[in-house]
Design a protein around this nucleic acid. Sequence first.
DNA 1: CTCTTTGCCGTACATGGTACGACCACTATA
DNA 2: TATAGTGGTCGTACCATGTACGGCAAAGAG
Lengths: 254, 254
Amino acid sequence: MASPNEESTLIWLRREPAGRRPRYSREQIARAALTIADAEGFDAVTMKRISAELGAGTMTLYYYVRNKADIVTLMQDAILEDVLIPAEELPEGWREGVTAISRRTWDVLTRHPWSISSLNQAQFGPNAMRHYEQSLAVLRHTNLTGQQKIELTAIVDAHVAGNAIHAIETQERIRAAASDPTLIQDAMAYGQKLVAGGDFPELQALAASPPDQAEEPEAAVSARFTEGLATRFTKGLAALLDGLERSYAITSTG
Amino acid sequence: MASPNEESTLIWLRREPAGRRPRYSREQIARAALTIADAEGFDAVTMKRISAELGAGTMTLYYYVRNKADIVTLMQDAILEDVLIPAEELPEGWREGVTAISRRTWDVLTRHPWSISSLNQAQFGPNAMRHYEQSLAVLRHTNLTGQQKIELTAIVDAHVAGNAIHAIETQERIRAAASDPTLIQDAMAYGQKLVAGGDFPELQALAASPPDQAEEPEAAVSARFTEGLATRFTKGLAALLDGLERSYAITSTG
DNA sequence: CTCTTTGCCGTACATGGTACGACCACTATA
DNA sequence: TATAGTGGTCGTACCATGTACGGCAAAGAG
């Protein structure tokens, strides 16, 4: 039997140094890492970089945290905090509730493009738990069984995550293209080469039609794109909920 | 003006060594990498490891490929080949077609868990192009405009990817738990601790009900889970298509 | 004032990607 | 057949990153 509560594999079960006068805190560390990730991408989040940001030695971090994965876990949990909707702001109906939560989740994930690259390394945390609880709570006054609530939440969450990834990738592509036009040129060249081969009639047909809205300030293009992604997401989500409402025969029992 | 076609940023536009008698080929390299990834996970895919698999020196790979990202690109494209549906097997209606493609995509992605971890590093390739073409082709005999086809495809693709990720994560968690029971124990301990705090009424309610189907051979549990994930995916997809059919007022013009 | 604990961090090592350039064998030309 | 060039292989070396280890100083306890 291990000593109570210490040396767990979960950071959430290991107490944070709080004894005499620790100079830093897990929260500070997470915040620093987050700042870096948002500004320079996930790859820039390095133990050295984080510690430098805090004015500490690299190894100091290991006093607060077991390894880098722990820090990533903290980061994920930090952004999941933003995903939570204050109780007062939660709309009434199940459908409005799910929509609000999903929309907010998508927003937050999209605002933190690194959230995708870091997916594999993170662990379930308290805010994930709260998010889950909230997602279920929204379904309270429906005729769904517990298993059905779980299922529906899983489906919707997966949908949201998938669309967030899609949006992030698109945005990243735009950014990359802006900083290095060669990328686009090459991609276009390759695409055209393939299409010219004649094996892609559908794509060929599409390539012919759109009115190439060139000549627009970079920022505008980017902004319109992001907007477009958001409305596309909204549309898809509505369709999904429509279908789910039907197939589960969901009714309000409020 | 650069020399024609050489030194592109895209591997697809750089010719493969084929002159005198190259000992290897990009395809071989990709296959080797794929084998390793499937067997030992993406992290095991190392330049040294790949070359060892081929019986070559590490640096030899760089004669066929510019860098590791290129190899990842080749890997992705390789599995996308499996995603393509032979023309004869494509069902008639748009809905059946989309379902078949989506289902197959989900299957393949799920069978290659590393496809997720490698998302960020890969580039669009020929098989991605074919997959896209096929997705559009299935919508040919409908009343959708070109933009709508693109939109719908994007939505469905994102949905599929999201669900695949979800499934993969679940499976990975199961595997991890199987190899190290401590993980589950800790997670359960933490979960219960949180729930005991009283702030998670919905989760508490759910935790009470399910008939803890313990005492089942590991393999069986895992298999049932996978199956469950697949049917869940099918259900969600059907709902999504239902909703999309309605909101786009899709009709067949076949 | 001494001893123990807390907290900080320099050093060192393992691993992974990759730039550079030596080296060998084959082929074309003289 | 000798020579020069070129296609293909790979050893060495360098850099970046995560982290184990252990020393050290300061704070508190006795």
